[in-house]
Each structure stands twice: as C-alpha cells, then as structure tokens.
Amino acid sequence: MTWLLDQPLTWLFATLLAYRGGCWLRDRTGRHPLAQPVLVAVLVLGALLLLTGTDLDVFDDGTAAISFLLGPATVALAVPLHRQLHRLRGYAVPLVTSIVVGSVVSMTSAWGLVTLLGGSERLAWTMTPKATTAAVSIPLSETVGGVPALTAALTILAGILGAVAGPTVLTWLRVRDARARGLAVGAASHGIGTARVLGDDEVTGAFSGLSMGLTAVVTSLLLPVLALVLGGGA
C-alpha cells in the first residue's frame, strides 16, 4: 500500500477522479453553489493526503501534468471572448475603469484589513495579490516581501469563495448584465470563478476571462507602486 501511495500516477488518477466526482455532485444537486468541483476535489484530496500521510512532493510530481495544462487552459479562455467581441463596442472605457478601480480596492483593502487587525507587514503583503491568478500572485508576493506559498493558498481560497458565492451575491445586488457579472467574478476570483460562470453563461464567462487577464496585468503594474508608497518589498 505504501508503494502505491508513493507513485506519482496514483495522485494524478486521484485528482482527476476527485474532480470528476465534484462534477457528478454538481450535476446531481442541480448546480448547487456549494457543489463546486474544485471545492469538492480540494476537500477530498486534502483528506486523503492527511489520512495517508503522503509527502506533498509526491503529490506535486503526480499532478505536474495538470499544473502544466493550466497555462494552455487559461489561454483558451480567449476563445469564448473572441466570439463575444461585438459586445465590447462602447464598453471599453467603463471596462478598463472598473478593472483599475477594482484592482486598487482589492489590494488596498487586503493590506488595510490585515494591518487594522494587527497582522504583520509580511502577512499584509502576502494577502495583497490574492485576486490575481496563482501564476501571477505567487511571484508578486515574493517581489513585495510576502509568503508565496501562503499567497497561493489564499488565491485558491479566493477563487473558490468567488465561485461558490459570487453569482448569488451579484443576483442579490440585482446585477443582471452578463458583462458586468463576468467582470466582477473574473476580477475577484480569477480562473476558478471564470470556470464556474462559463458553465452558466458564455457571455458572462467570456467577460470573466477578460477581467481575469486584465486584473492580473493591472495588479502587476500597480502593486510595486503601492509597495513603494507603503514601504513594502523584500
């Protein structure tokens, strides 16, 4: 049994099976907000790793192929956006404005909240880039003096929370426009949230993918400036 658990392919199979189980649960519950495949997979795999005492390096080796495919999968989000390009007419200025304002609010509120609650400066900078996709948030965290591993966990958590609660909150707030809903989800919960709304509506998913990419770019440009102003940096 120990030999089997130490094989990288075991965890590749377990990851795919856990995600597929999450998809099955989502469909069986009528797409309940809590039945998000990523959330289900995280809970199942986390429990398995704890119960078996498997080294995380073994898990990382086994899921390296999935991690590699995240890049092409992110680029592929441009396909639904290309189909919706006609909806961008007359929307460029409010789109860019909302992304810039949203990025600034996300960074400053995260930094300010940690500082207000008495957290360390390092924890504050660890939290600050959480709204960008993990591939961006990790190097940004390292640049401004955060803890990259913790930033990765917080980024994933933000994505899961956005996927679970984002569409419902937007409905409560009476945000009906598919473009606005997509921009909000993509800016707050990046790829995980985008995958959620893309399955619900192609227009919302397309604008969420666009928002995710633009948020990463804007945050990458503004976070070093914010760190310079507030005295961050490694």
Results as ranks from 00 to 15, higher is better:
53 G>V: 04
234 A>C: 03
106 S>E: 02
158 A>N: 10
229 V>L: 15
167 P>L: 03
107 M>W: 02
146 G>Y: 11
79 V>M: 12
154 L>M: 13
167 P>Q: 01
35 A>F: 10
181 R>D: 00
72 P>K: 04
55 D>I: 00
85 L>W: 14
59 F>N: 00
83 R>Y: 10
103 S>D: 10
219 T>Q: 03
216 A>F: 10
195 A>N: 06
101 V>K: 13
110 A>C: 07
234 A>D: 10
92 A>H: 09
162 G>S: 10
140 L>N: 03
74 T>S: 11
92 A>T: 08
119 G>N: 14
65 A>M: 12
84 Q>H: 08
110 A>G: 12
73 A>P: 02
113 L>W: 14
100 V>Y: 14
30 G>L: 11
159 G>A: 06
26 R>N: 11
173 L>V: 07
212 M>K: 14
29 T>K: 14
107 M>A: 15
210 L>Q: 04
159 G>P: 00
198 L>G: 04
184 A>G: 04
156 I>G: 03
59 F>A: 03
229 V>H: 12
138 I>M: 15
216 A>N: 07
232 G>C: 07
66 I>S: 10
33 P>N: 15
68 F>P: 08
215 T>C: 14
148 P>K: 01
30 G>T: 02
163 A>Q: 05
50 L>V: 00
118 G>N: 08
132 T>V: 15
218 V>E: 09
81 L>P: 11
180 A>R: 00
24 W>S: 01
54 T>K: 07
162 G>D: 02
20 R>V: 05
23 C>E: 03
9 L>S: 04
233 G>H: 06
174 R>D: 14
163 A>L: 11
93 V>M: 10
195 A>S: 11
143 T>P: 01
78 A>V: 13
123 L>T: 09
24 W>P: 00
44 V>M: 09
120 S>K: 11
26 R>S: 13
35 A>D: 05
145 G>T: 09
77 L>K: 05
119 G>C: 15
89 R>C: 11
220 S>F: 06
45 L>G: 03
103 S>W: 04
2 T>F: 13
211 S>V: 09
99 I>Q: 02
38 V>R: 08
229 V>F: 13
127 M>F: 11
186 G>W: 11
89 R>F: 10
13 F>A: 15
204 T>L: 06
78 A>L: 12
121 E>M: 13
124 A>S: 12
39 L>I: 02
90 G>D: 04
168 T>G: 03
229 V>D: 12
132 T>W: 05
34 L>S: 05
100 V>D: 11
